[in-house]
Structure formats: C-alpha cells, structure tokens
C-alpha cells in the first residue's frame, strides 16, 4: 500500500530526476494494474458466472463443475422463468405498485419540501423533526397496525396496501432531500416572485418546480430503487400469490420448483440483474449522484 500511495511524479521541483525514478514509476504502475485487476475479478466474476450459469441445463448443473461453460446458449431457462416461473407477472405487479407510489411520493414530497424550506411559518422545525423520525425508526414499527387496518378495510387482496405504505415510507427522505435542494436556491428568487404579485402556489408551480426538475428526477430515481428492491413491506402485505412483487416472487422461486430447477432460477436472477444493468448504463452518473446525495442528507 505504501508504495502505491507514494508521491506522484507530477510536482517535484526541488528534487532532480534520478535513475531510480523510472523504475519506481514502473513498479507503481504494476501495483496499480494489479489492484485494478483484483477489483475487476471481485466485482465481475460473480455476475459473469451467474449469467453463464443461466444457460446451463439441469444435468450440467449436477454433473459439471461450477466453472464449466454452458454447452449451448438456448433461452429455454429464460422462457421457463418468464412464463412458468411467473417472472412476467411479478414484474408487472412490481411496476403497478412502483409507478403510482413514485408519482405520489414526488408530487407530495416536492410540495412539502417547498413548504418546509421556502415558506415562513411557525412549527417548521417540529414538522421536520417528525419527518426525521420516519427515517430513523425501523419499518417494523409500522407493520402490525397497518396490517390490521388493511385487513379490516378489505384492502388486503389488492396492491393498494403496497402503494399506500411505499408512498408514506418514501416521503421522509424525499422531503429532506427536496428541502436541501430548495435551500440552495436564493430566497430572493421566491421573494421577488411574490413581490411581483404571484401567489405562493403559482411561485411553487411556475418557478420553484421547474428550477428543481433535475433534483426531482434524482429523488425519483432513489425512491424507485428503494421501492423496486424492497422486500419487507411487500412480503408483509402481499397475502395473495398473484400479487407478489418481483422480490417476493424471486425469494419464493426455489419453493415453486422444489430445490432442483437451477437453470430457471439462475435465469430469473439474471433477468433482474440485466434489467438493472440496462437502467444503470442509461443513467449511471445520475444514479450515483442521487443515491449518495440521499445518504449524506439522510
């Protein structure tokens, strides 16, 4: 480690170049390449193995060692996972739960963030503190009463419990992140707008919202991953097998086939990974920025 972190060669005005320098530089490059190679192996190998294995047949799983390549590249495992394994249904359910929740979170959360950061009123801090509670307290604290309410109001057989719970659970972080974004806009902007005769609602809709459009996209992305990858809430509130989200479906995938159908299981996992990869390739910088911003602010 010491070698790799030693001074870079760029600014060294006080020392004349010596013969030892090129050799050191060479060694450093070697160490650097070795570190990168190690990191690549750690990150990529498991995923690559997963994808390769998803093409294997049952007998290849049982008879061949784990590192062997698949003998053919047919998509049989994928079609089986997609149809018989209900992955298509689960993904549809996940979408139907995620999209409305996401829309509600953004709509309610951005407005609340504006009200908490830009507007002037008494009790702001108490409300912010109440939202902070939602970030700290574990979800286990809300499951039982909600389960009872959803059960007694007859919502249990639908996706409504998921949408309601996701919306509420996503609000605290969204409100905090949006409040932070609004803080970075000079107050004069809003004050000038209201001086010119705009109402607060108009100032919000015509001026504030367009100004934070990028932030809204980022916040939405963060919430998308939280909801899409959630297991606890979906596991609790989906009592009906046909309403399973993709995570719950994946968790129970082994159960449906017994322990033996490895190919379709690997294919089902791969479908998840490939889907995520697509989204990631599309907008990875946005995702990284959004998730890490949420972290420090949360």
């Amino acid at each position: 480690m010491t070698d790799t972190l030693a001074a870079p060669p760029r600014v060294r005005p006080t020392r004349p170049p010596t013969a030892a320098l090129p050799r050191r530089r060479h060694a450093r490059r070697l160490v650097r390449n070795a570190l990168v190679a190690l990191l690549l192996v750690i990150e990529v190998t498991p995923l690559l193995w997963l994808l390769l294995s998803s093409f294997k047949t049952q007998s290849e799983f049982v008879d061949d060692p784990a590192w062997s390549l698949p003998k053919s590249w047919g998509l049989a495992n994928y079609t089986e996972a997609w149809t018989t394994g209900h992955v298509a249904l689960y993904i549809r359910n996940s979408l139907m739960a995620t999209v409305p929740s996401l829309a509600l979170i953004v709509l309610l959360g951005v407005a609340a963030g504006f009200a908490l950061e830009v507007m002037v009123w008494r009790g702001r801090h108490q409300v912010l503190l109440a939202f902070l509670l939602g970030i700290m307290v574990p979800s286990q604290m809300i499951l039982l009463p909600l389960f009872r309410i959803y059960f007694q109001t007859g919502l249990s057989g639908t996706l409504a419990p998921l949408i309601i719970t996701y919306t509420a659970a996503g609000l605290p972080l969204t409100v905090f992140m949006m409040a932070t974004y609004f803080r970075s806009i000079p107050r004069e902007v809003f004050e000038a707008a209201t001086l010119d005769g705009a109402s607060v609602l108009k100032a919000f809709w015509k001026i504030a919202f367009p100004m934070v459009r990028n932030a809204v996209f980022t916040v939405g992305l963060v919430q998308f991953f939280f909801i899409w990858n959630d297991l606890l809430i979906s596991l609790t509130f989906t009592t009906d097998d046909d309403l399973r989200t993709i995570q719950v479906g994946l968790l129970n995938f082994t159960g449906q086939y017994g322990e033996t159908a490895y190919g379709p299981l690997f294919a089902a996992i791969s479908i998840n990974v490939i889907g995520a990869l697509f989204l990631y390739l599309l907008i990875n910088q946005r995702i990284i920025k959004g998730l890490t911003a949420g972290a420090v602010k949360g």
């Binding site: 609340a112 009200a115 507007m119 009463p145 919306t167 609000l171 109402s199 607060v200 609602l201």
Partner: peptide, 21 residues
C-alpha cells in the same frame, strides 16, 4: 397555500407512519 402544499404529505405521513408507530 401551506395547507395545500404541506397538508397532503403530512396527512399521509401521519396516518401511515406516525399513528402506527
């Protein structure tokens, strides 16, 4: 305006998070 902007979020959050807690 405060009621319109903050009201819905606070209501949902209170009913679905704070009350169950």
């Amino acid at each position: 305006a405060l009621l319109i902007l903050l009201g819905p979020a606070l209501l949902v959050y209170t009913l679905v998070m704070l009350v169950p807690m």
